[in-house]
């Protein structure tokens, strides 16, 4: 038969060394020195709305933006592929004909709307777009007081982004909290880098 072998663990009796360590409070001193070190080290807090702001990497998927080409023409040709690709049906595109040179082809979007309250920023629209017109940008302060404000129209989306496309990102920069009539904005100063370790 299989005899179960029970291993008897003997508890170590505290030796003289342990006792000595106890009497001089060695463990306490170790712990206290660690907390003192942290107390004197720099804090890792990002003072976000007031003084500092995190600029994401270019791969970040934030609010949508519509691009133009070098001559300022709208890249969007209203092919509606983004609408098809969108898993949450948050994009609305209504095409129209236009040969005034507003767009790169004779077909432009009359309406290009995205409901950011529904969007979950998967980036499929970006992948589907044949002309790289729609991109997910780096704006992440999307909170608003009314649900209507979460619908972004073409005019808003065509405005240039607060962070340029070729900006490296992944850093903390100086920023300023601004209270305007349209809401609270945190304006970054991209060239004032703040080092955090």
């Amino acid at each position: 038969m299989n005899e179960k072998k029970v291993k008897i663990v003997k508890r170590d009796t505290p030796g003289a060394l342990d006792l000595a360590k106890k009497t001089v409070f060695l463990d306490f001193i170790k712990g206290l020195s660690i907390t003192l070190r942290y107390n004197l080290s720099r804090s890792i807090t990002i003072r976000y709305p007031d003084e500092e702001k995190w600029i994401p990497y270019p791969r970040f998927r934030g609010a949508h933006t519509l691009n133009r080409d070098e001559e300022g023409r709208e890249l969007c040709v209203a092919c509606e592929l983004c609408v098809k690709a969108c898993p949450t049906n948050c994009i609305t595109v209504v095409p129209m004909e236009d040969d005034t040179g507003k767009g790169i082809a004779d077909r432009v979007a009359k309406v290009w709307e995205v409901d950011l309250a529904r969007c979950f920023f998967c980036g499929y629209c970006e992948d589907a777009c044949p002309t790289t017109a729609v991109r997910l940008g780096r704006d992440y302060e999307l909170a608003c007081f009314e649900l209507d404000k979460a619908r972004k129209t073409k005019e808003e989306l065509l405005k240039p982004q607060s962070v340029p496309e070729d900006f490296e990102g992944g850093i903390i920069v100086q920023a300023k909290l601004q209270r305007t009539k349209s809401g609270i904005k945190v304006k970054p100063n991209l060239w004032k880098k703040k080092e955090k370790k």
Partner: peptide, 14 residues
């Protein structure tokens, strides 16, 4: 403040 800095935070700041 002491609590904050020991926990590598800033503590009350606003």
């Amino acid at each position: 403040k002491v609590a904050g800095h020991i926990q590598v935070r800033l503590g009350p700041f606003r």
